[in-house]
Write a protein that binds this DNA or RNA. Structure first.
Length: 572
DNA sequence: TTTAGGG
DNA sequence: CCCTAAA
């Protein structure tokens, strides 16, 4: 499938694999009692989340104190401390470690397995890496049902829980799941629980990050978007919570368009938000008038830590949506189902005029940040265009237009009261499509005639380069960091991460290193100069002590090396 | 991929 | 927090 492959390359989708479509379907269609229960509860959860999202009040003050609840225990295994040379500075540092080889993990694992098998009848995956790499939802939905805990005083911290929402063919369901780390790739003895992440995604797949070996848990971003945008419109645009189905196979006489029609009609009758109408009123003169009442965002990949507050989730989704609509998306134009690739032609030359049936007109949503390969009247080859697109797409874009085959079709809006229909299907997916060059930037269209996606300044302003939201370290985190550094030293940030921040997916080892850097700085300045949440002096003292200790340690190491080198040099 | 260090 | 050279 050309588009998918293209984006696989561009966005490195290898880290977010999807199960084969066939296996996805199997899972989704497996309806036993357990699943039904889950769905029921899940929908409630989704609804409650939506309610939270809709709350105007935002108290984003929740700290991430819980981020390392599990990692707090010093259950590092002793063999991970490598040798005498890297022992902690016992002379200076009091030992604060409980027995070191406690693995609190075992009971959890058992719980997970049993839940998995009993509740869902699903097989857990093995521990081997190759198992993990091929995990599908079917074979490794190795999950632990878990209560949603919202600590009092917070605005819904999604702590250590995973929200799974799907917009299935038949119903919405979601559920907080907790995914086991059984498939983690780490083979170090001290690793326990992987990065806890919550992945919001539009769509149904539950991909797994092969890099970390962790599950990314999904919920329907369009739902969130719909919650956020529920009562707001942006020009003609509004978002709804329905799912666009796409990439239906055309083989076996399967007609994706028809299916889409039926499906969406049912959805609309279910009371889903929908477009009401799209006007299509050809009149005298040369103007082409139409409106697009609504469309759906094709796909959003948003990663937020599970310690994020609902408020921050809200902002994140908002920013991603704004960025998507502002800069991250471009519009393709279809006439009679064919992409129009020459931007220089007038609409009437293209066959669009008041006299023509505008049902021929359609639009596609395509990833933005693509050089305007069709800007030149010279027709470029499909390969050229594709390559250009690949080169220029920013892999850091936090959302992914996985499939650029979503179409805003005025035809369907008019005739079927639908605003979106699938355009491209798997039938052409395996070969580079000649249509791939038909990337038509909206800016090059007649601005007056086709101002279909009003962009507000906010959207434009939103940078696509998503700097991570600042997350000040809590005192508890500092405590954990200090303890880890005391034990492991200042040069083993990965181990520090694994030891004490394994659960805090938003804390990378670089973050920890940076925090240590600032801690050392903070400790060495006067209290009056310090800012932010005050760190207890006791901790700062430990920071300085550990810093001195390990610096000295490093000096000794270097001295030894020097001496050894000298010895070798002089003996030759 | 991890470390180290500047921005 | 970001970026990136270097390992």
């Amino acid at each position: 499938m050309v588009i998918k492959r293209r984006f696989n390359h561009v966005f490195d989708f290898s880290t977010i694999p999807k199960a084969p479509r066939s296996t996805r379907r199997k899972l989704l269609s497996s309806k036993n009692d357990g699943v039904d229960d889950i769905r029921t509860t899940a929908f409630d959860l989704l609804a409650s989340l939506a309610g939270k999202l809709l709350e105007e009040s935002e108290s984003s003050s929740t700290s991430s104190t819980n981020a390392f609840v599990k990692g707090k225990g010093n259950n590092v295994k002793q063999e991970d401390v490598e040798d005498d040379d890297v022992k902690p500075c016992e002379s200076e540092l009091a030992s604060k470690s409980p027995p070191s080889d406690i693995t609190s993990e075992t009971p959890l694992e058992q719980t997970r397995v049993s839940d998995c098998e009993r509740g869902l009848g699903l097989k857990p995956c093995g521990n081997k890496k190759e198992d993990c790499d091929d995990i599908t939802e079917e074979t490794c939905v190795d999950i632990e049902k878990r209560e949603v805990k919202t600590p009092p005083g917070t605005d819904g911290v999604l702590n250590q829980s995973k929200l799974v929402c799907r917009d299935d063919d038949d119903e919405n369901y979601c559920k907080y799941y907790r995914f086991s780390d059984r498939c983690r790739r780490f083979n170090r003895p001290l690793t326990r629980v992987g990065h806890r992440r919550m992945m919001t995604k539009y769509g149904r797949a539950v991909p797994r990050d092969t890099r970390t070996g962790y599950y990314h848990v999904l919920f329907d971003a369009s739902f969130v978007a719909s919650a956020l945008f529920l009562n707001s419109t942006c020009g003609y645009m509004c978002l709804d919570g329905c799912l666009l189905y796409r990439k239906r196979k055309l083989c076996n006489g399967y007609n994706p368009w028809r299916h889409e029609t039926v499906h969406r009609k049912r959805r609309l009758s279910d009371g889903g938000l929908s477009s009401e109408s799209v006007t299509n009123s050809p009149q005298k003169g040369e103007s082409v008038k139409f409106s697009i009442k609504s469309f759906r965002i094709p796909e959003l990949f948003i990663e937020v830590p599970d310690t994020a507050t609902v408020g921050s989730l809200k902002r994140t989704v908002m920013e991603a949506v704004a960025a998507l609509l502002g800069d991250g998306i471009r519009i393709g134009v279809l006439v009679q189902g064919k992409k129009v690739r020459d931007d220089s032609n007038t609409l009437s030359q293209t066959g669009l005029s008041c006299r023509e049936n505008l049902s021929n007109l359609g639009f596609t949503l395509e990833p933005g940040h693509i050089p305007l390969c069709s800007e030149s009247p010279v027709i470029s080859t499909p390969t050229d265009c594709t390559n250009l697109s690949e080169r220029s797409l920013d892999s850091r874009i936090p959302f992914h237009l996985q499939d650029a085959d979503h179409v805003i079709s005025s035809k369907n809006c008019v005739e079927n009261n639908q605003e979106l229909v699938p355009y491209q299907s798997d039938i052409s997916a395996d070969e580079p499509s000649s249509d791939s060059r038909a990337l038509v930037p909206v800016s090059s269209l007649e601005p007056d005639a086709l101002a279909i996606v009003p962009l507000n300044e906010k959207s434009k302003r939103t940078e696509v380069s998503q700097r991570r939201t600042r997350r000040p370290f809590s005192v508890a985190e500092v405590e954990a960091l200090v303890a880890a550094v005391e034990e492991l030293g200042t040069g083993r940030w990965r181990d520090v991460k694994l030891r004490s921040f394994d659960d805090a997916s938003h804390r990378t080892y670089v973050d920890l290193k940076d925090k240590w850097k600032t801690l050392v700085h903070t400790a060495s300045i006067s209290p009056q100069q310090r800012r932010g949440e005050p760190v207890p002096q006791e901790l700062l003292d430990r920071v300085l002590a550990a810093h001195r200790c390990w610096s000295q340690h490093q000096l000794k190491q270097n001295g030894k090396l020097q001496a050894a080198a000298t010895m070798v040099g002089s003996s030759m």
